[in-house]
């Protein structure tokens, strides 16, 4: 551990994970600063879960290095495990135990001092608003409650880094919003760094920094704002009384490329706010309506890969998962 890097919570350098001919993770590098929310974004099967598994010491890397809180994930797995909390994609709760019992189990497993167990368990239960239902069996919980309970469990041993692998997968919109509400509170209230993966682009907006991964490679990284700049500006669309006239005018005077679709004219401006007055000034009363749209992370992904990140993208990824499973069975 060198002191100059003491504010780096996660460091990954040239990480590779190979299953026979499949490169699940292909030479990725990134750093995550302490106390920030880092988003790992990509379609299903892009290598997100494989990366998390290596960081959590469940998988060994083919080559490259990963460090959590300064500890090498391969050389000091035990130290790494003490420093992290994880919420996996699939539930890892014991459904035949109560919420309270699940949390106490965790506290013992992480060697929390006995005198503190009750306090910590109760405080995380209050934090996720499940205290009143702590003595119910987990199998009676809804999907959203289970996920919240898992986040609560991940906090009991005061980890430095909390991993959230697709935390909102399969939740209804209300539970999703609710979950995000308190995930964004975590870095401040629990002094923890968040590493999350998701394939819902809109959810990644809460991140301080994002890395976009596709086919095992990081294809872009930066803050959401920085990434959106890749798209090249805001999308402005207008309807006019005379599209032909307007189009010619915009192309000649404002030097913007115009696309016509469904009787609407689309153009990309660096700064939508300053672009609109120019448009109206030059077109006068021919303008009927103006719409301005900020680029979304989905537009970024589309721009970088030529495809959207939707779930219908899954068939290929499932085949990757299948091959990885087949590989494991053989070895």
């Amino acid at each position: 551990m060198s002191h100059s890097e003491s504010n780096i919570a996660i460091k990954v350098k040239n990480l590779v994970k190979r299953y026979n001919h499949i490169l699940a993770v292909n030479d990725i590098s990134f750093e995550v600063e302490e106390g920030t929310i880092f988003g790992f974004l990509g379609p299903n099967g892009a290598g997100k879960t494989t990366t998390i598994s290596i960081l959590c010491t469940l998988l060994s890397a083919t080559s490259g290095n990963a460090y959590i809180a300064g500890y090498d994930c391969t050389k000091y797995p035990s130290e790494v495990r003490k420093s992290i909390g994880i919420v996996f994609q699939d539930s890892t709760l014991d459904k035949d135990l109560t919420a309270y019992e699940n949390l106490v189990f965790h506290a013992y497993l992480y060697n929390v001092p006995k005198s503190e167990i009750k306090n910590r368990v109760e405080s995380v239960l209050h934090f996720v608003n499940l205290y009143e239902r702590k003595d119910e069996l987990v199998k009676k919980y809804s999907g959203g409650m289970k996920r919240k309970l898992e986040v609560a469990r991940g906090l009991i041993h005061k980890p430095q880094v909390l991993f959230l692998d697709e935390p909102t997968l399969g939740l209804d919109p209300q539970s999703r919003a609710n979950l995000w509400d308190f995930i964004t509170k975590l870095p401040k209230e629990h002094n923890v760094t968040i590493f999350m993966t998701t394939h819902y682009m809109d959810e990644a907006e809460v991140c301080d920094k994002i890395a976009i991964i596709d086919n095992g490679k990081i294809i872009a990284s930066g803050s959401p704002e920085e990434l959106k700049k890749i798209v090249g500006g805001d999308v402005v669309s207008i309807t006019t009384k005379d599209n032909l006239y307007a189009r010619k005018h915009i192309e000649n005077l404002l030097k913007l490329e115009v696309l016509e679709k469904n009787n609407e004219l689309y153009m990309t401006c660096n700064q939508g706010e300053t672009c609109i007055p120019d448009l109206i000034r030059s077109l006068g009363d021919k303008v009927l309506s103006v719409k301005i749209q900020r680029p979304t992370l989905n537009d970024v992904f589309l721009k970088l890969t030529g495809k959207t990140i939707r779930e219908d993208y899954a068939p290929e990824s499932n085949s990757t998962k299948e091959s990885i499973r087949a590989y494991r069975r053989k070895h």
Partner: peptide
């Protein structure tokens, strides 16, 4: 099968 094993395996326990 139900995932609980992962909770045990990622814990700092030999």
């Amino acid at each position: 099968e139900f995932g609980f094993m992962k909770e045990i395996l990622v814990a700092p326990v030999s």
